[in-house]
Design a protein around this nucleic acid. Structure first.
Lengths: 182, 182
DNA sequence: TGCTAAACGGAGACAGTCTCCGTATTGTCG
DNA sequence: CGACAATACGGAGACTGTCTCCGTTTAGCA
């Protein structure tokens, strides 16, 4: 890629991250282009669809997901607490941006989604936590990580659109956790 | 209301129902106006926001909800089956239109939502089923009907955006049911 | 330095939302 | 019946966001 192209691309992603955080994923793309000092054409050449841009913005977030999962694995305590803890982290992780839960959870299991790679990272992280608990025989094994992701993602989606506090969400996560524990 | 106004209003709702079913809740309102043979201004005067129109469209659906809840109450069998049965009906009910689950579940608990009345009907129906099971001591009582609605609504939302079959959804509903049963 | 492939950018086509206001219709009252 | 408010209509057009096309510019190589 030519140096100027790379520069512009980077600038667009940087601006997009900021704008998405402030205005949500529906922010006008032309606005992002303008703030990045490029024409709309340039933005659309680099990122043909909104999802492609979101995908790029999320790259940094991926590392964060890994970290959080790592930490969850080192937690002590009863399986129920560890599971709940992870669920809360999970909700937090996918709720970094307004509309994030719906976008991520909707893309889950969709082979052709532009943000699929990000979903896989998340699913893998979730799988690690779940596997550990399963190894202890604490979690039923007829439920797939994808299903768990959708259950928790569903709650996060509702919480996001209804502007619920994490404290309000917790009882719902408890129900899911109790349904999963053996 | 003047007779012609009533006529137009009815026509708009009728057309909207059809268009929403075919194209989802995002269908252009100007298109609905045109198909109803009125100007956009007329549509917007009757229904200032999209939600107001959706609310009107859903009026017939309300009766359907009541019926379904009534039927669910007469079901025989183990509490788990009855609960699951109701959950499936619930998902079906709010999934009549594309985007329905998100819209309805998002409005749940929001005092000022234009479709609030519809949510209340749904919540009341759900409450009746839940109360019956609670009376038998089959369901834990530290979970509110609103929370249950959000849990199941969350699953329905994911199913809707990911185009999942009801069969795929069932295992997730089982987790919720198991988490709710004593 | 000159050349060419790559990249730019912005004008503008298109689509959807929503309003304003001149025009038309209704229903009432003398 | 006829006229006159009050009510309602409707569509032009302003506005916003998406996305493309293509003439112009620039990077990087020979």
């Amino acid at each position: 890629m030519r140096a100027d192209a790379q520069r512009n691309r980077d600038r667009i992603v940087e601006v997009a991250r900021q704008v998405f955080r402030e205005q949500g994923y529906d922010a006008p793309l032309d606005l992002i282009a303008k703030q990045a000092g490029v024409g709309p054409g340039t933005l659309y050449r680099h990122f043909p669809t909104r999802d492609d841009l979101i995908d790029a913005v999320m790259q940094a977030w991926v590392d964060h997901v890994q970290d959080t999962a790592d930490k969850a694995l080192t937690h002590e305590g009863a399986p129920r607490d560890r599971l709940l803890n992870w669920f809360e982290e999970y909700v937090r992780l996918i709720s970094v941006h307004k509309g994030g839960p719906a976008k991520i959870t909707g893309a889950m299991g969709d082979e052709s989604s532009p943000i699929r790679s990000k979903c896989e990272v998340l699913q893998a992280a979730s799988g690690r936590v779940l596997d550990e608990l399963r190894a202890e025989g604490a979690v039923r094994d007829d439920v797939t990580p994808l299903q768990v992701a959708r259950l928790v993602g569903g709650v996060a989606t509702v919480a996001d659109t209804s502007d619920l506090e994490l404290a309000t969400v917790r009882p719902m996560l408890e129900v899911i956790a109790d349904g999963l524990l053996t």
